[in-house]
């Protein structure tokens, strides 16, 4: 019988610690599928963040080096500069990349570090128990925004990916969501392209993935994922934010395959 579905080689046969309805498992799987499809498992090094995905090294079957909170792209820079022929990716949450690690993110992008950043935006600090994130949208109740985020009190959500667009070394930035099968396929295409950018040595690539945190949003899974589609995308509209890869004109449009 033909096998039509299997666990990606780059994903270990381990049950994750993620909450029911969380998007991390889907995003892990997409990254692992991309690593498999590009045939780079043996030369990929991942840098997990501090946050819910800190244990990602228990799930990805590639070399992994843990970074201090917010510093993943700086750690990845160090790895990549020593081993330029390896593939280095970071996997970071919104607090990690867009609050404490803002400076590192902007400057790694600006230097055009040849790394791939996977930025999971779920609008909340998950691991620490649901505090406000830089990406918390107005009105969302968190443990540190009583009554919901108020722009005049707590500031407006920060669109880091849009900020990175002005960085000259950032060649590919796209925002996707993993809210339904159609968007999940879209997300995978973007992730694959972001790895291809690195393989082609073009510069810094980042994919922002909108995800749900039903636990800390205090919603059931279905409501949470609907909320990603209906509400989060208002502040964080999906789509390509910057693309200077030139892939559409060239033969490397394979990254755009709908697999």
């Amino acid at each position: 019988m033909k096998q039509v579905f299997a666990r990606p080689k780059s994903l270990k046969p381990a049950a994750t610690h993620y909450c029911p309805g969380c998007g991390h498992s889907i995003i892990h799987r997409l990254v692992a599928e991309v690593i498999d499809e590009l045939g780079i498992q043996e030369r990929t090094i991942g840098v997990p963040p501090a946050g819910c995905a800190v244990l990602a090294y228990n799930y990805f079957d590639v070399d992994m080096g843990e970074a201090p909170h917010g510093r993943a792209v700086a750690v990845a820079t160090g790895i990549k500069r020593v081993l330029p022929d390896r593939v280095v990716f970071t996997y970071q949450g919104d607090g990690d990349i867009a609050a404490i690690g803002t400076a590192e993110s902007i400057h790694a992008a600006n230097r055009g570090e040849k790394i791939t950043a996977i930025f999971v935006n779920n609008a909340v600090y998950g691991m620490t128990g649901g505090q406000m994130a830089p990406t918390t949208v107005p009105g969302l109740v968190t443990t540190t925004t009583p009554g919901g985020r108020q722009v005049n009190r707590d500031g407006a959500p920060l669109d880091l990916t849009q900020m990175l667009a002005v960085a000259k070394g950032a060649v590919y930035l796209e925002r996707v969501a993993v809210s339904d099968p159609k968007h999940i396929r879209q997300a995978k295409k973007a992730i694959k392209k972001a790895f291809q950018v690195q393989l082609d040595g073009l510069g810094f690539a980042l994919v922002e993935v909108l995800s749900a945190c039903p636990t800390n949003w205090k919603m059931d899974s279905i409501t949470a994922w609907q909320w990603v589609k209906d509400s989060m995308t208002k502040d964080f509209p999906l789509g390509v934010i910057k693309d200077e890869t030139g892939y559409d004109a060239g033969p490397e449009t394979e990254a755009g395959d709908d697999r």
């Binding site: 090094i45 080096g65 750690v75 500069r81 400076a103 590192e104």
Partner: peptide, 18 residues
Amino acid sequence: ESELASINMVIGAAMAGG
């Protein structure tokens, strides 16, 4: 861009064996 970034680049380079 900062001492924080530089020491974390040191961490990465050390992880990679440099």
